[in-house]
Design a protein around this nucleic acid. Sequence first.
DNA 1: TTTAACTTTTGGGCAAACCTAATGATCATT
DNA 2: AATGATCATTAGGTTTGCCCAAAAGTTAAA
Lengths: 223, 223
Amino acid sequence: MEQAISFTEENYLKTIYSLSKQNKGKIANLSIAEKLHINPATVTEMLKKLNEKNLIDYNRIDGAALTSQGESLALKVIRKHRLWETFLVNKLSFNWDEVHEIAEQLEHIQSDKLIRQLDKLLGFPKFDPHGDPIPDKNGQLPQSQAFPLVSVEEPGTTYKLIGVANHTTAFLQYLDKIKITINDKIEIKEIHEFDHSMVIRIGNRTAVMISSEVAKNLLVSAQ
Amino acid sequence: MEQAISFTEENYLKTIYSLSKQNKGKIANLSIAEKLHINPATVTEMLKKLNEKNLIDYNRIDGAALTSQGESLALKVIRKHRLWETFLVNKLSFNWDEVHEIAEQLEHIQSDKLIRQLDKLLGFPKFDPHGDPIPDKNGQLPQSQAFPLVSVEEPGTTYKLIGVANHTTAFLQYLDKIKITINDKIEIKEIHEFDHSMVIRIGNRTAVMISSEVAKNLLVSAQ
DNA sequence: TTTAACTTTTGGGCAAACCTAATGATCATT
DNA sequence: AATGATCATTAGGTTTGCCCAAAAGTTAAA
């Protein structure tokens, strides 16, 4: 019963997985359509098909939810994506804002040995260049104590940047511009009540102001 | 006029290129069909399409021949294929008989920078793990003075194995079994007239007998 | 040179993913 | 509970790349 899975199907599973992690509620066809830039009608067809294949549970009322089989496939694709991103940055000197598109292609390459060996070459990394956790070969995600910087209420404390919640080129290039990168220390100097913008000090450089929108997308841990 | 090219089209171009290098004559639809394991009718359709796109010159009488544009695309794919094979063997500890299928997938990944950086990581190799020449970024193939071992007429001389003309798993595993690999020295001890089988000495080990079929697929250079 | 064997092409079809336009459901609000 | 607004689905179409069977063209051998 070897069930072949197409690139397209893998992309749907990945999308459903990531939507299910961000919005806790029902996964609407429309949100899948928007994320994949395709027509909702197409989504309906594909969800029916994935349902048939037992990769998702789907009905009009509850929307789509991955079955355990579907989730494990999604995690496999995500694992590949994040390992390839790590490879591109760590071994091929890519910048973190250049790797997404290429990893979107590489994530569909099929070879278990390839991924095992790549993982080894990279030293079994737990997080990718954006701080996203890399599922292990069993689909287990490493624990992360990341929380968004915007959730901090009081100034005075120093945190460490361990990830970003937005992977757009625009955002990553903004971070490059204000010269902040993974593992940098961030000290909160001021929090402005009315718009929740912040003044932060990165490392021991001059303080900069960031909007709450930016703070929302900076994932930090204590100290 | 950015002309997108599909995986399938790339595979046709690559196939036409390699057929044109081995058989000097006309490239028949049927030989393409056999190599790609598809129906001849499908080949006719695709050749027409590639002709439309100016990637090949095609007509029923002369068969298919790459245009310069088509050849340059074919060489690009071959470059990627061979660089990826080199990566798999040199960086990920694959055996040379395991890399073909994976490289068939990887060769279609689109990113010029990726290939530039991969080339650099590998130290700008000129030949892949099977001794096949890797086209440079301009599509230039390095010179190779390889000739098939079978073409040697007299015993007594020592050669160096620099490539293989057959990439099947079966042949490569046979070579592993008789423990011969790229760069090994081969001394010809005997040549049997009637079937052109040979007795050869690999390095300084015990001599072994090989058939002319094997000798045909061993590419060597002087000393 | 004519028949047999082989190759190429045509014509009709199929499956995967996509689309648009129109219809049918559901939801939120008055 | 009716009414818009929004979302999901259906129906009919497209493109790409494949198939088969039959027809047409080419080549080679009798």
